[in-house]
Design a protein around this nucleic acid. Structure first.
Lengths: 214, 214
DNA sequence: CAAACTACTAAGTGAACGCTTAATTAGAAA
DNA sequence: TTTCTAATTAAGCGTTCACTTAGTAGTTTG
């Protein structure tokens, strides 16, 4: 009855593009509203496709979320892989890791939203993804090695637990961004201006590097 | 028709107790599942009362959430008020603030769950609560003053932004706890054992106090 | 070309869930 | 005792939402 949409004519039928569009839309929706707040109706509206394609390609809402998580994690991994290649001196390597961790959170804001969701659900999705589970071993090795080299050359204090240091470096950026709304209200500031982000980046670097002094 | 429950006999009809039971149950439910994941049916099941009492006393789910948030925040405030009274030397005061912030998160686990929820919803609930908005001014003043005294006596470095320091102190504990599930998976550890918590507490203290050295 | 396959659509369905209606009962006030 | 108010309950209403059914139309293949 209705006039046929122009897009139905030719050139449609692009499964890979459709899948990617759904994944992109789902990433935004899950990151913004969390798993429970997300609506698959919203995802298909953003992706401009029929709702059943979500079920055709991904099965159900939970499997869609897992697909989103795996893609997000492999992006983080890629990001960190770059870091590991740089074999500068220990202090430069550490500074690079700090800055790049913070910038990763700033530049891909969906990462934090997804992590928040995954922790509400007690990590039950990534727990079953061996890819993700083993992802951070290399990064921890890199941290340990950098730390050791710094201790050997006398620029770092000794006895620092690499795991705790890893958590701290992530915490400093993650919390600033994940809690920017409540922090904004109670501290009367806008934490997302470029100037404020630069200030935070410098502060985080100072905190960690200052702590690591012998 | 059915046998009357024993509790209906006498001694029931306790509006304050009922309200408190609902608030307690709602706090647990909202903190565990987040605002969207929480079910008011679950709240009344935990509170062992009829569902309509929730609407009778609180109006709707959102207003119930606001009531929960206000109570949670005033507890945090109370906790911090204690801190401000201690006028020990700057280093002791700072150490006390660090440890007590971490322990506050550990001892009232619902705090983090509620903050997570509130940030997903862009702080739209606490934004309209003047009580909460003004709550942290005093704490920030205390931080600023402690910092200044430490600089004057030569035990702290100068030029530290009190706001950023406040964020960092909170970040170090908050992230460790809010993300314990994903961290547990990727770092192969249990972060909730008493020993691990003590290790983290010591590490956070080292990071901040180490950073503050001149 | 025809058959088979798969991308894609339209139109539901059933269940969950927030909330309401309407009535009942306990206790306070008069 | 009667009256009034507020605490409490039972039952269900309307909507939202994840997911399904059943079909159409491009695309590939024998």
């Amino acid at each position: 009855m209705k006039a046929r949409r122009a897009t139905t004519k030719i050139g449609t039928r692009d499964p890979l593009a459709t899948k990617a569009k759904i994944l992109d839309a789902a990433t935004r929706e899950f990151a913004m509203r969390g798993y429970d707040g997300a609506r698959v109706g919203e995802v298909v509206k953003r992706a401009r496709c029929n709702i059943n394609l979500v079920y055709h390609y991904f099965g159900n809402k939970e499997k869609l979320f897992i697909a989103v998580m795996e893609r997000a994690y492999s992006r983080i991994r890629l990001h960190h892989k770059d870091m590991e290649l740089r074999n500068a001196d220990p202090q430069d390597a550490m500074r690079g890791l700090i800055v790049s961790t913070f910038r990763m959170f700033v530049d891909s804001p969906e990462t934090i939203g997804l992590l928040v969701s995954e922790n509400i659900h007690r990590a039950r999705h990534i727990k079953n993804s061996p890819l993700i589970v083993s992802m951070y071993d290399a990064l921890l090795d890199f941290m340990r090695e950098t730390l050791d080299r710094g201790v050997a050359t006398g620029v770092f204090r000794s006895g620092v637990d690499p795991t705790d240091l890893f958590i701290s470096i992530n915490a400093e950026g993650y919390f600033y961004l994940s809690n920017r709304h409540t922090l904004g209200v109670i501290l009367h500031q806008d934490f997302m201006t470029e100037a404020r982000l630069r200030q935070r980046e410098a502060f985080i670097t100072d905190v960690i590097m200052g702590f690591l002094r012998p």
